[in-house]
Write a protein that binds this DNA or RNA. Structure first.
Length: 654
DNA sequence: GTAGGGTTAG
């Protein structure tokens, strides 16, 4: 029986690859030099050629080395040629242009040279050609090396072809020994999890005779990506030696799964374990702090970044993450300072800053920055456009938004996605052009997702259009049957129109589905950095009596300035007094009253909310900023409102 | 040759 794992070919290559172009004979050996001396000289030459190749920066330099190699009769030297092929792959030289010709001149390629070609095609494509080379190599009787399989698995992972991956998996078993190889196993795990077959990856992991921290980390990350932090944690705790990458995977995993406190705890454990911190760890950590939204954590994490030597001035990754964090913490000025201080900026820095401006209602600043970016060589991407379109929509700049939307594909090669259509529907809808918005959704060239219909539903709330709202809601109930917000929104729209029968119909649907409203929460940070949480209707705060009194005082002063409760915001079929009482128990009003009691006069009050601010609270905050003479910043689940002197930065568009 | 990474709209 043929030995399948035999490493070297016995069949000349020209019999296998018929498209062979040249055939160079090996140079005759110069017999007058003693063999050992000849070998030594040749070794030195090979080393020299390899180091020359290492220093090459383009194809013509490689060609020079190649000519040098041919002059010395090394056209058959697989060792140097392998390096040459790898170098050209690294430089991005198309395989068919040069490497293939070099390869075809070699009569008996060794497994490494074959593999370099296979890897070349896995990087540049087509993957079918990589497989073709693999098949030829096997037919030549040449056994693969572990790197052959890792290259192939990587390619399958990149093109998400699990069926091909499985075939190669079978080969690793058939050829013998390779399924047990550490690197092969690791790339196999990676391939399965990338293709979405986590269980298969786990099986490979469980059956591996040797594992290293890479194998563990791959799986941990896979669990964090599907949101299974329990399994990720379990694996992580079992990992004998945790390195920086593994710790970072956990910190980032928590951050990405909306568990910022756990991310911070994990980071503290990491520091306790004496593991270092790099820019990637910081990015995860900064994202966790952004979610907490408190200046205390923002300052803390910035300090860590500076002390670890990854300050925002020097490091574009950390800088961009900090811009986003400060924007989300309500400190737009601080975000802009970071942006201005950065030595290097990229599309992430610009997009984050543009989104920051948009989030805070500074539409003109966002658009100006966009134009500033266009004067650099940085090109906008899909997220940049989300930023400018959002800015336009929040400022009611319909024509400008339309114009930008029209240019994105034409000039910047960014194909509008459903997310961009969401912005456009939002833009038209907020401006009151509900029919146009509906028309856009119905005629858009790609499928509308929940976001698009949600934008339309939101616009119907602002402009009180229950009929279009019902159309949008019907689509949303199909697309997101369990999303409570859509039912609440539709019900409120009907309530505002006093269509109580429709209200109870929607309520009934919610009840049948077993859906419950999310409780509304607000947070304020006191001057000591302590965060207080308020739930709507809650009366058990230790200082409730003072809070209630402060709120009543404020209400009286506001009423003297003409404030009238907006009863539509309490969408219940109840009496007027009950509805007024409900309005006064909204969590952001409690938080505001507490902030007035517990923060310094003259300081900005920052309130965070888990759901959208209601119209009554919005009017209330406007008035409060005036009568109390305070700046108030409210972050709801969508964006920021800056209240100052009786006005809000959102211009009542939200 | 294998593992961790930033901005996303209702």
């Amino acid at each position: 029986m043929q030995n399948l794992s035999r490493r070297f070919s016995t069949v000349p290559i020209h019999k296998l690859l018929p498209q062979q172009l040249h055939q160079h004979q090996p140079q005759p050996t110069r017999f007058f030099i003693p063999f050992s001396e000849f070998q030594q000289k040749r070794k030195l030459l090979e080393h020299k050629l390899i180091s020359d190749l290492d220093g090459c920066a383009n194809l013509s330099q490689v060609k020079e080395v190649h000519a040098h190699l041919l002059r010395h009769g090394l056209s058959q030297c697989c060792y140097v040629l392998t390096k040459l092929v790898r170098m050209l792959t690294k430089l991005g030289v198309p395989l068919d242009a040069y490497q293939r010709l070099v390869f075809l001149q070699v009569k008996y390629p060794n497994p490494f040279l074959w593999t370099a070609m296979i890897r070349g095609y896995t990087v540049q494509g087509p993957i079918s050609e990589a497989l073709n080379f693999y098949t030829c190599m096997r037919s030549a009787g040449t056994g693969p090396v572990s790197f052959t399989f890792s290259a192939l698995f990587k390619a399958c992972g990149d093109v998400l072809d699990v069926n091909l991956g499985r075939q190669i998996h079978a080969q690793t078993i058939l050829v013998g020994g390779f399924a047990a190889d550490l690197y092969v196993g690791n790339t196999m795990i990676d391939m399965y999890v990338k293709c979405g077959f986590l269980d298969c990856g786990r099986k490979v992991f469980d059956e591996m005779p040797d594992r290293d921290v890479v194998s563990w980390t791959e799986l941990i990350v896979a669990y964090t990506k599907i949101g299974d932090m329990g399994s990720a944690r379990e694996l992580f705790e079992g990992l004998p030696v945790k390195d920086m990458v593994a710790w970072t995977a956990m910190v980032t995993g928590y951050a990405q799964n909306a568990r910022p406190r756990d991310a911070l705890d994990c980071f503290e454990r990491m520091q306790g374990a004496g593991v270092g911190t790099d820019e990637i760890t910081l990015v995860g950590l900064i994202s966790a702090c952004a979610q907490l939204g408190a200046s205390k954590y923002a300052n803390w994490v910035r300090d860590i970044a500076e002390k670890s030597g990854f300050g925002p001035t020097e490091n574009v990754l950390v800088g961009s993450a900090l811009i986003d964090m400060y924007s989300k913490c309500g400190s737009l000025d601080e975000a802009y300072k970071v942006f201005q201080g950065m030595k290097e900026r990229n599309v992430f820095s610009y997009s984050s800053m543009i989104l920051g401006f948009a989030m805070h209602g500074r539409a003109n600043a966002a658009i100006e920055l966009f134009h500033e970016m266009l004067t650099t060589e940085i090109r906008p991407n899909r997220v940049t456009f989300i930023g400018v379109l959002t800015a336009c929509s929040h400022a009611g700049m319909v024509d400008q938004g339309r114009q930008l939307f029209a240019t994105m594909e034409k000039y910047y090669n960014v194909v509008p996605s459903a997310d961009h259509y969401t912005c456009m529907v939002d833009l038209l809808g907020r401006a009151g052009r509900l029919e146009e918005a509906l028309d856009l959704v119905e005629t858009m060239p790609i499928a509308a997702h929940g976001g698009v219909w949600g934008a339309l539903l939101g616009a119907c709330r602002i402009h009180g259009n229950p009929d279009i709202a019902q159309i949008a809601a019907n689509h949303l109930f199909e697309l997101e049957p369990d999303s409570i917000g859509n039912y609440v929104m539709l019900s409120n729209i009907y309530a505002s129109a006093e269509r109580w029968a429709d209200v109870s119909r929607v309520r009934k649907m919610m009840k049948e589905k077993g859906l419950k409203k999310n409780p509304a929460y607000s947070w304020v940070e006191t001057k000591k950095g302590v965060i207080h949480e308020f739930c709507a209707g809650e009366t058990n705060h230790p200082e409730y009596a003072e809070i209630k009194k402060a709120l009543d005082d404020l209400l009286n002063r506001l009423q003297a300035h003409g404030y009238q409760p907006n009863l539509n915001s309490a969408a219940y079929d109840l009496g007027i007094e009950d509805r007024k009482r409900i309005l006064m128990s909204h969590s952001e009003k409690l938080a505001l009253a507490y902030a007035l009691l517990s923060t310094d006069a003259g300081s900005t009050i920052k309130i965070m909310k888990n759901i959208r601010i209601c119209e009554d609270c919005h009017v209330f905050m406007c008035g409060a900023s005036q009568v109390a003479g305070r700046e108030i910043v409210v972050r709801d689940n969508m964006r920021f409102h800056h209240f100052s002197n009786g006005k809000c930065s959102c211009g009542n568009f939200w």
